[in-house]
């Protein structure tokens, strides 16, 4: 590497540098922050949000936004738990089918969401917001407001079984990150998402069926929301209407902090990973250094602003909304 680092390279790595700076910062304040145990704790807390953030990253790349993830997570979590218990309640039986079924359900949910947005010509912000209500509503309808406990030892093994200090679900999530990265870089649909985000009209003029790309993008996002739901259920052992709560803002914030642009075409899976880690490191670090819990939301907010300021190339932005 040359002595001078170009501005572009610096910006590309800015979110990662922010992450490292945060780790160093918290380690100085409390050395116990930098330990395998704590790293596992951060990774575990980050896993469900990571899946959701990757899902929404696909949408942000297109220059759209998706606010339906809370509904999607709730409905797929509840659906999974219901089917799982109906079919025997343990992975050792046919109930394992509930896992792929939940992912499929998430994909269908996302597809309907994208289809509404494209067919009815409703901007994705509104379509997905309303469709998110439908998802939460469906979950409420299925549970009647009750919690469903999933206590199968094998399934909870995602949480309890550890390899090299990290729970199994963290490793699994890493595998899905690689799959998402593969989709983003190596498949036609992955590349077409960038074409739509970089210049939808140009892409259309080149003969790309941009509506189809949009619907597939939302379908993909839905599948990842479902993965997030499965991880969330595995983590707490409960599926309920509230399983999806708080995923919306945290996942979009994470993606943006990691360097995914809200106006499309910029960023990708690894940005989402870094962003989710930044947010979770801040969250965890505040606890480790003993910051009073009532201050944590405010400090998180300020740090997020700082991270976004440091990691976006504002020369490219003519005006910000």
């Amino acid at each position: 590497m040359g002595a001078r680092i170009s501005r572009a390279t610096l910006l590309r790595w800015a979110p990662f540098l922010v992450l490292i700076a945060l780790v160093v910062f918290f380690t100085i304040l409390n050395p116990s922050f930098f330990s395998l145990r704590n790293a596992a704790r951060i990774a575990l807390a980050a896993t469900p949000a990571l899946m959701v953030a990757i899902g929404v990253t696909f949408i942000l790349i297109m220059g759209s936004i998706d606010l339906s993830m809370e509904g999607a997570v709730s409905v797929t979590a509840v659906l999974f738990a219901t089917v799982f218990l109906q079919l025997g309640g343990t992975l050792a039986s046919w109930a394992w089918i509930a896992l792929p079924a939940a992912v499929l359900a998430g994909a269908v949910f996302g597809m309907l969401n994208g289809w509404l947005h494209v067919k009815l010509q409703i901007p994705s912000f509104m379509a997905s917001l309303a469709f998110g209500f439908v998802g939460t509503g469906l979950a409420l309808m299925m549970t009647g407001g009750d919690r469903i406990r999933v206590e199968d030892e094998l399934f909870r093994g995602l949480l309890t079984f550890r390899f090299a200090g990290f729970p199994l679900m963290v490793w699994l999530a890493f595998g899905f990150v690689l799959i998402a990265w593969f989709i983003q870089t190596r498949t036609t649909i992955g590349r077409n998402l960038y074409a739509v985000g970089g210049g939808e009209e140009l892409a259309h003029a080149s003969g790309l069926n941009t509506r189809r790309v949009r619907v597939i993008g939302f379908t993909l996002a839905g599948a990842f929301y479902a993965l997030g739901a499965l991880m969330a259920v595995a983590r707490i052992g409960i599926a309920e209407t509230a399983t999806g709560n708080n995923f919306m803002f945290i996942s979009i914030t994470s993606a943006v902090v990691g360097g995914v642009a809200l106006w499309g075409g910029i960023g990708g899976v690894w940005n989402a990973v870094v962003g989710v880690l930044i947010v979770n490191v801040i969250n965890n670090g505040m606890v480790v250094i003993g910051l009073p819990d009532y201050l944590q939301d405010g400090v998180l907010g300020l740090m997020v602003i700082l991270a976004v300021v440091l990691s976006t190339d504002r020369r490219l932005v003519s005006f910000v909304k």
Binding site: F249, T253, V256, V257, G301, I305, V308, T312, V320, K321
Partner: peptide, 12 residues
Amino acid sequence: LKVPSFISTLAI
């Protein structure tokens, strides 16, 4: 600071 309002208002 050119932070999108979606993020800035959420943080505030």
